[in-house]
Simulated scan of single mutants.
Amino acid sequence: KRPPGPWRMLWRKFSRNPFAMSGLVVLIFFIVVAVFAHKISKFDPAAIDLMFANLKPGVSGHLLGTDELGRDIFTRLLYSARVSLAIGFSVAFASILIGSVIGAVSGYFGGWTDTVFMRIVDVMNSVPTLFLNILVLALFGSQIKYMILILALTSWMSIARLVRGTFLQLREMQYVEAARAIGVSSWGIIFRHLLRNASFPIIVNATLMVGNAILSESALSYLGLGVQNPQTSWGLMLSNAQEFMLIDPMQAVYPGVCILAVVLAVNFIGDGIRDALDPRHQVTKSRRRLDKWRKSYSRSES
């Protein structure tokens, strides 16, 4: 019988983690809801009708009621999921791409290349991220493409350091020396061999970066520098609801709960992948089980 591959082994370990599986179910639910938002709700998220302003939940077919402009809150939540998730995954992908390339080149070649790239990382880490994001969006406008770009350009540094550290270890392995001996180019070794072996920690950090990107987008939209009307996002809904916190606090609760659920789900998924990949965690878990069995056995003997 053919032994299971690394991805199947990863899935087996991951599926045994109830928190990780719960997070995966929640994330898939929000993705499905975002994709089929136009099928789930019949209302237009940007349609303004002051005749139906501030309706209670369930009135006139509005499941969660309407806001101060008569817009359906449930519909805006669905379409906000599209924008927030798209920004979260786009920023994570772009950050992983930039950080992986810079970290791989820096860790493999070393020398002055490593010095230059790591000093760039130090400079980027010293810049106040929130201030830079606000400055760029205030100068160039609050378009989604600019938001994704600036969030990605201020989020890749941790990935670069992670990949660099991994490459510093992997470049001394015997299979790398063998690849050099048979004439494989440095770029071939980096992209065909080393990046593949460094993919698991990159995946873990990618999942965590999705949650951070969603929180950053929500913060910028809350400050009025993110997504603008007629588009909608969870952060923009929070910004619009702050004036009505004492009158109708549920307008802020709904998007806040959505942000909390998605960020927690992504973090649980990242923790589950990390636990499935970390052999030290497995050893510690086995030791705990063994100690627990020994204690129970000693009690039964006594």
Rank of each mutant, 00 (worst) to 15 (best):
P201H: 08
I259L: 09
K295V: 08
Q242M: 12
H281Q: 10
R287H: 02
A261N: 03
S185T: 14
V253E: 00
L223P: 04
P255V: 09
F191I: 10
N212M: 11
A252F: 05
I269Y: 04
S186G: 12
A178C: 09
E177A: 15
T207E: 01
S296H: 00
W187T: 15
R288M: 13
V204Q: 05
S185G: 15
F200Y: 09
R280C: 00
M250S: 13
S286A: 15
N197Y: 06
A206Y: 11
G188E: 04
V204A: 06
S286W: 03
R180G: 06
C258L: 12
M209S: 15
I190M: 12
D291E: 10
V263Q: 12
T284A: 12
L208Q: 06
I269T: 00
L290E: 13
S298R: 10
A181P: 01
G211T: 06
Y297C: 03
H193C: 00
E243R: 14
G188S: 01
H193G: 04
T207F: 13
N205E: 14
A261P: 04
N212S: 13
M245T: 04
N197T: 07
R294L: 12
A206Q: 03
V210W: 08
L195P: 08
S286E: 15
I202Q: 07
L260Q: 00
A219S: 12
H281W: 00
G224K: 05
D248I: 14
G188R: 01
F244L: 07
T232G: 03
I182H: 05
M237S: 02
D248V: 13
V263T: 14
A198L: 01
L260W: 07
V176H: 05
V176W: 06
L225Y: 11
D278N: 04
P201E: 09
S298E: 15
L236E: 11
A252D: 07
Y297T: 14
E177H: 11
L225I: 10
P279M: 04
A265S: 09
D275I: 06
A241W: 07
L215P: 02
P201K: 08
V176G: 06
A276T: 04
R294T: 10
R294H: 11
I247C: 00
Y222H: 08
L194C: 06
S298C: 00
R299E: 13
G226S: 11
F200T: 15
W293K: 15
P255W: 01
P255Y: 01
G188F: 02
P230N: 06
P201Q: 09
I259W: 05
M237L: 08
M209F: 08
F268D: 07
A213T: 05
P201L: 10
I189K: 09
D275P: 07
L290S: 11
Q282C: 01
R287K: 08
I203S: 03
R299A: 14
